[in-house]
Design a protein around this nucleic acid. Structure first.
Lengths: 218, 218
DNA sequence: TCGACAATCGCACGATGGTGTGAGGGACAT
DNA sequence: ATGTCCCTCACACCATCGTGCGATTGTCGA
């Protein structure tokens, strides 16, 4: 966050009048300030060093030039701490899905009232996921189409702790890191892994990870 | 929706005092009414015919008796039109994920203020997905771990040999076994793995295997 | 012809992992 | 109360791995 209490918001939007309108709405809101308004990602990019760091970026994914989703990826790389909220007219499944996968913190349609944008910015800073109802329903739809809500654990009878450790190892962590993360001894991790290997009928870390991911145990 | 303008809310929650507190908050809110407050799903079930139909159901997944997620499924079957909002103390990944897959319209933690519950009910009726920030961040996390978007499609530029070795390691083979299988020296396997790790930006065998499988490189 | 690169092989070091063996405490059901 | 899990921790031995530092081939395009 910023040293001041204000949330610094950047706006990347090619439509000049809409951009001004949103920028004004943000500035008139207490607790936040529009620190930059750009008509393309490239324009914003040049300011990333000179103009301080944004807390929140409002991004249109229908930008000319670079594809909006790629821009999102770039922003995330340049600025992992910033929350990126998509603000666009597109509500198709693919754009929404790709944006969320690329690390968007929220997804608003331009049908939203400008006053609601301020709320969304605050929500995003609190770890929330501000979404227009229409977008939210598509996200829920995605989950409800997920098959079977994941059955227990495919007959391997892993305990909760074992699954936890297996999951961490499948993220590439080594024993010591897992031990630190769970705040237990690395010897204990070894003991759990021993049980996991036995239950999965493998005898290497790679074998366990492969089986875990392939059979969707984790 | 109901013929009246009021949103009819049912509450299934075993803690009596919390139940009363929430019921009161709903009734005191304009535009909605608590049409039923039950301490278990079974109790609610008996009223499903006699007591009219709820528009929204607030459901605790930590109920005694039937598992909350199963109850959610039952409610969805008996009442496809109702929005079910989970209201619980549990914020673990598994419960959230299973609830959303089972068709929940929202997921609130009991740390929420009772006043926020009314907002959530309205959001749900508008097709939104009311979620406590903590829950929302877990949902986002889920998407950001989806490989779909970041697949520039094998943008990792692995050579054929590297892919071959990565595939074998993802089957649980160790270096020596891979060397034997390919009829090359284990040192050579080491060299290839070195390149693989560099290209995938990992530094452990498990990390490489996890990335390989999840991003469908192999 | 020359450089870039893939594929092969080697050695050595320290770090990490797998496994045998052992143990204590807590939760829970018979 | 007794036994059965689960989780926890410990030590030791050896295998395996990650990596820095080499090296020699062959292919392929510039």
């Amino acid at each position: 966050m910023n040293k001041s209490e204000n949330i610094v918001v950047w706006l990347i939007e090619d439509n000049a009048s809409y951009r001004r309108s949103v920028a004004r709405a943000i500035d008139s809101e207490a607790g936040m300030i529009c620190g930059g308004a750009f008509d393309s990602f490239e324009a914003a990019q040049q300011q990333f060093e000179s103009a301080g760091d944004p807390d929140v970026v409002l991004l249109d994914v229908g930008l000319p030039g670079m594809d909006g989703i790629e821009a999102l990826g770039e922003i995330r790389k340049l600025h992992a701490a910033a929350n990126v909220i998509i603000l666009t007219v597109f509500d198709d499944h693919d754009k929404i899905f790709r944006a969320l996968c690329a690390g968007a913190s929220g997804y608003l349609l331009k049908t939203s009232k400008v006053e609601e944008i301020a709320d969304a910015i605050r929500q995003a800073r609190e770890g929330g996921a501000p979404m227009t109802p229409k977008v939210a329903s598509r996200v829920l739809e995605f989950f409800s189409k997920q098959p079977a809500a994941r059955k227990k654990n495919s007959a391997y009878d892993l305990t909760a702790r074992e699954q936890e450790i297996l999951a961490l190892m499948s993220d590439g962590l080594i024993k010591k890191e897992i031990a630190d993360r769970l705040d237990i001894s690395s010897h204990t991790v070894s003991t759990h892994l021993r049980s996991i290997y036995e239950k999965l009928h493998v005898n290497t870390n790679t074998g366990a990870v492969a089986k875990a991911i392939r059979e969707k145990i984790i």
